[in-house]
């Protein structure tokens, strides 16, 4: 078990290095000199050269890469070429906002999907199961941004129950924070929940067909109890995989949702930086998203070990 864990940590580190190289290389080959962009087309060659030297852009790529990684690892990514502000605190603020969105969205998705998926599987031959199935199918078909716009139209503009957009840090005004969080989280969570529901349904259906569930019933367990005691843990294995993939799509989905609800999250920062050609910030944000995805995958691998004793190996 320890050996497996160490291996997985090694894999995580290697993939972090590889992805950082990829992100850096991709930004490096992009046409457009950051210094030129920062100063505008009218700036003189010497001014541009001076700025290049100031940013360290005249150094070899390897040196640039290393100092970038060093900045990330020490939580001091330096200053932006464009806004000349410290990137670190900005990233931390924005990350916090996005984590609230994604975290709450994921929790809502699970709260919706777990009972719905199980119910749909257990009743898959009955009308109630089919109705739920059709509902979730509709949910899958709706993109998050469309759901967001619809929710704004109905609950903010139409009924006026909730604010249409904006963001307030929870420490500043917890009530307003929650009010503003409801609609974006709903639009993220419902769509993800619909997708997750379908995966949970099929995972539970697979488990319902397993021999060990028949064994459980042959022991005298009623169907629902057999499913809860013997099925759910086994059904969790494929669902956890999907959950990890979904977290990645949620991060991307948050980019769009932050735009719709005017939320200053990582996604907004990314889009702003792209349009400002603030390449160093783009690079940092992309790397943070990549790290988040890799970290989630690492956690999922670790969760597998907890769920399925067969993966632990060598314990007999």
């Amino acid at each position: 078990m320890i050996v497996r864990l160490v291996k997985r940590i090694a894999v995580l580190l290697v993939s972090l290095v590889v992805s950082s190289v990829l992100v850096f290389a991709f930004m490096a080959v992009l046409p457009g000199d950051p210094a030129r962009v920062a100063l505008g087309t009218s700036a003189s060659e010497t001014a541009v050269a001076q700025l290049r030297e100031q940013f360290g852009l005249d150094r070899p790529f390897v040196a640039q890469y290393l100092s970038w990684v060093h900045g990330l690892v020490t939580f001091d990514p330096g200053t932006s070429y464009i806004s000349h502000t410290e990137i670190g605190p900005q990233l931390a603020d924005r990350l916090q906002v996005t984590l609230w969105l994604v975290g709450a969205g994921m929790v809502l998705a699970c709260i919706l999907a777990v009972p719905m998926g199980i119910l749909m599987a257990v009743r898959h031959r009955r009308p109630s199961g089919l109705i739920l199935s059709a509902l979730s199918q509709a949910g899958v078909a709706v993109p998050a941004f469309l759901a967001g716009i619809l929710l704004i139209t109905v609950f903010a503009v139409g009924l006026g129950w909730l604010p249409a957009n904006g963001w307030t840090p929870p420490a500043q005004d917890p009530v307003l924070f929650l009010k503003q969080l409801v609609l974006p989280v709903l639009s993220l969570g419902m769509v993800q929940g619909a997708v997750l529901t379908r995966y949970i349904r099929s995972a539970v259906l697979d488990v319902l067909r397993e021999d060990y569930l028949r064994t459980a019933r042959a022991k005298g367990l009623r169907p629902m109890r057999a499913l809860v005691r013997h099925g759910l843990r086994n059904a969790a294995v494929p669902v956890v995989t999907v959950l990890a993939l979904q977290l990645a799509t949620l991060l991307v989905g948050a980019v769009v949702i932050e735009r719709v609800f005017v939320i200053p999250g990582l996604g907004s920062l990314l889009l702003d930086s792209v349009s400002n050609r603030d390449l160093i910030v783009v690079q940092d944000v992309v790397m943070i998203i990549a790290m988040a995805v890799l970290l989630v995958n690492f956690l999922v691998d670790t969760i597998y070990l907890m769920i399925d004793p067969r993966l632990r190996g060598g314990s007999s």
Partner: peptide
Amino acid sequence: EPMTALNPTM
């Protein structure tokens, strides 16, 4: 089928 008749996680 004894290979599948038991719950692998218990």
